[in-house]
């Protein structure tokens, strides 16, 4: 009894005087990451970021645990079972990158009913009780045209490389590009191909359409296709236009080479895999009792001429430029949603 009281008292003192006093509310909370797929460099980077940031947070006592779980196969039914297991395991919050926006809703509803905070990101879910950290893909498309409008006010012909047909991400980025062109009528999309977010596919597609195109001033892309486009232009012995890059390591390396050789200028934009850490902090903030809007938007990661070298240095070979978010970043994102 007395020992218990002493423990309680010392715990209370630790709470008052401890360095993490402001965050003590969540120190006993457990957060789980439910991830549906780990088979590409983006997802690997996402998991590595999660590991790095959450291990630090657990060591500092911000939360009690932050365990990542990845389903063995990219299937919604399996992920639903995984989420239900997490409920049984007694996690306080579940951070989800969902295999399907709708097929997990039943399991997520179960979690909410059990009093668990659910935060979805990247692959978001439609269940209203969950939080959503969505990517503004449309804004990403629009920002490309805005950059080009500033760089070449006289305008010119554009070649658009799209992603995988029928996927909503492709539609959204494309809609952004179209909206940007409408606002800046000095640009004209003269050709459009599907690059499937893969360098080899993009290269083939661009090589196929190039002979039929007039002079191309710039190439707008969706990420993972800029290097392939550059190769196609080089092979066709045409002057290299301004190709927007997508933060992949091979693209950044090529850009650096061109920059050193001929002072080539462009920009690069994509989503940082570290968005998982943003979701982690948002979940922590919700557990901490903060008021958080259900729909948040994640900023995209943009690389410009002057910070290319710095980003290239931190990007792993064959990987994607990444940024990990801190608690302060999350608070900024939460505040900007109000």
């Amino acid at each position: 009894m007395t020992i218990g009281k002493m423990l309680l008292a010392s715990a209370a003192i630790a709470c008052v005087f401890g360095p993490a006093a402001a965050l003590a509310d969540t120190s006993g909370k457990k957060i789980a990451l439910s991830n549906n797929y780990a088979g590409n460099s983006w997802r690997q980077a996402m998991l590595t970021s999660w590991d790095k940031i959450t291990k630090e947070a657990v060591a500092k006592g911000v939360v009690a645990a932050a365990d990542p779980f990845t389903t063995a196969e990219n299937q919604a039914t399996e992920q639903a079972a995984q989420i239900q297991n997490m409920i049984v395991q007694g996690y306080d919050a579940i951070v989800v990158n969902a295999a399907s926006p709708t097929a997990l809703n039943g399991a997520i509803k179960e979690a909410c009913d059990a009093g668990i905070t659910v935060v979805s990101f990247d692959g978001i879910v439609t269940e209203p009780c969950a939080w959503r950290i969505a990517v503004d893909f449309k804004g990403m498309g629009e920002s490309q045209i805005e950059y080009l409008a500033k760089k070449m006010p006289q305008g010119g012909n554009l070649l658009e490389i799209r992603g995988l047909a029928g996927v909503s991400v492709d539609d959204n980025i494309h809609a952004g590009i179209v909206a940007g062109v409408e606002k800046n009528p000095q640009f004209k999309i003269v050709g459009s191909v599907n690059g499937d977010w893969a360098q080899d596919v993009a290269q083939r597609a661009v090589a196929g359409i190039l002979p039929s195109l007039p002079d191309v001033a710039a190439v707008v892309t969706q990420g993972g296709d800029g290097y392939g486009a550059a190769q196609a232009f080089a092979a066709a012995k045409r002057p290299t236009p301004t190709i927007i890059m997508g933060n992949r390591e091979d693209e950044l390396v090529w850009w650096k080479q061109q920059k050193d050789a001929s002072n080539y200028e462009t920009m690069s934009v994509s989503i940082a895999p570290g968005v998982s850490t943003l979701a982690f902090w948002v979940a922590q903030q919700i557990l901490d009792g903060k008021e958080v809007k259900k729909d948040l938007t994640v900023p995209f990661l943009r690389i410009d001429q002057d910070n290319l070298e710095a980003n290239l240095k931190t990007t792993q070979k064959g990987g994607v430029a990444n940024v990990e978010y801190s608690l302060e970043d999350a608070q900024k994102v939460i505040a900007s949603a109000d």
Partner: peptide, 17 residues
């Protein structure tokens, strides 16, 4: 039964079955 659990469907929902 699956839809009753998940509340909504998608075309690839049960490929593992």
């Amino acid at each position: 039964a699956l839809v009753g659990l998940t509340t909504s469907a998608d075309a690839n929902i049960a490929l593992r079955y």
